[in-house]
């Protein structure tokens, strides 16, 4: 191929170190810029038309495999699956009926308490696009996006519990971060005792970590964790996981518990996206000042101000 005599065993001429340094600087510059400003998201959104077909193409074989499995499943398997589903449906119906009664009761009590907000749930159905972005970051791709009204921050749940939240929205698909991602944290409450704490993702798909439970707190193996609703991102009361192991942390200052996520994070292929977030972002907006109009309150406020000023 190369015929020039300059080719040595180390091929010095083929790649110069200078060019390497320039390109490395470019790459590092890109990383720093992106880390600071999160441009990747907007670039990806702009390139959504190009990127989405690739995702769908890559998901094709997995979908095909699933379709074939259904197609060649024997009558027996289908029948038993059908039976199992029927039973589940029955249980779910029974629970729902009981829940209806509870909802009615709740509504009555709420009306008594004059509570203004009700817990109406609007959900949106979505399917997973079966691509694997990175095994060490727990992300899933959903087949709904901006044109279906998806927004960043929407909680993702399945039948068993909370799965994660939407972190990126493309025109016709979106990317959600699972609760087990190593950079994810979700405020939870222990169902039995009402203890509030935070469940961090561990990077393993079947593990959540609760490293900061006070040493005097009462946590047992088997305790169920629910979302606490604090932080405003996840509505309260959804199952998050179940405590599997309780021990001391290394410093001996806290109880460190390990929990198993309730949702079938690595098996669900259909998910629900919650529509109404309890509080869109952050704390609620400051309330308007209540009181008499300023012009009426003016002299009184003036009079009150000097009186209050000398008090320490």
């Amino acid at each position: 191929m190369r015929t020039d005599n300059a080719t040595t065993l180390f091929a010095e001429g083929a790649v110069s170190t200078l060019r390497l340094i320039v390109y490395l600087a470019c790459a590092i510059g890109l990383m720093v810029l992106d880390h600071r400003g999160n441009y990747l998201e907007s670039v990806r959104r702009a390139g959504g038309l190009l990127i989405e077909p690739v995702y769908r193409l890559a998901a094709l074989p997995a979908n095909l495999a699933r379709a074939t499995r259904t197609a060649v499943a024997t009558q027996d398997q289908l029948a038993s699956e059908n039976r199992a589903l029927r039973e589940q449906l029955l249980f779910a119906q029974a629970r729902l009926n009981r829940l209806d009664a509870l909802v009615a009761q709740n509504a009555r009590l709420k009306a008594l308490l004059d509570a203004q907000k009700n817990l109406g749930l609007t959900v949106q159905f979505a399917r997973l696009i079966d691509v694997d972005l990175d095994p060490y970051r727990h992300r899933i791709v959903l087949d709904v996006g901006a044109s279906q009204g998806i927004e960043v921050g929407q909680p993702v749940i399945d039948a068993q519990g909370v799965m994660g939240q939407v972190v990126e929205v493309l025109p016709n698909s979106s990317i959600a971060m699972l609760i087990t991602d190593a950079t994810h944290a979700i405020p939870v409450v222990v169902e039995r005792t009402g203890l509030r704490t935070i469940a961090y993702g561990s990077g393993a798909i079947d593990e959540l970590q609760l490293p900061t439970i006070p040493i005097s707190a009462d946590v047992k193996v088997g305790d169920r964790l629910l979302t606490s609703g604090l932080g405003g991102r996840f509505p309260a009361g959804f199952p998050v996981g179940e405590v599997r192991q309780v021990g001391q942390d290394k410093s001996g200052m806290f109880i460190a518990a390990v929990a198993r996520p309730a949702a079938a994070l690595d098996r669900s292929s259909e998910v629900l996206l919650l529509r109404d977030q309890p509080q869109p972002y952050g704390p609620p907006a400051p309330q308007d000042e209540v009181g008499p109009p300023a012009e009426l309150a003016g002299p009184a406020a003036d009079a009150a101000a000097p009186a209050r000023a000398p008090t320490p």
Binding site: C26, A27, G29, L30, L33, L40, I51, L133, D134
Partner: peptide
């Protein structure tokens, strides 16, 4: 990085090396 990455430039760096 655009397709599978999380941080723009990470795979560029790896492939460069």
């Amino acid at each position: 990085d655009l397709l599978v990455g999380e941080l723009l430039g990470e795979q560029a760096l790896r492939l460069l090396v």
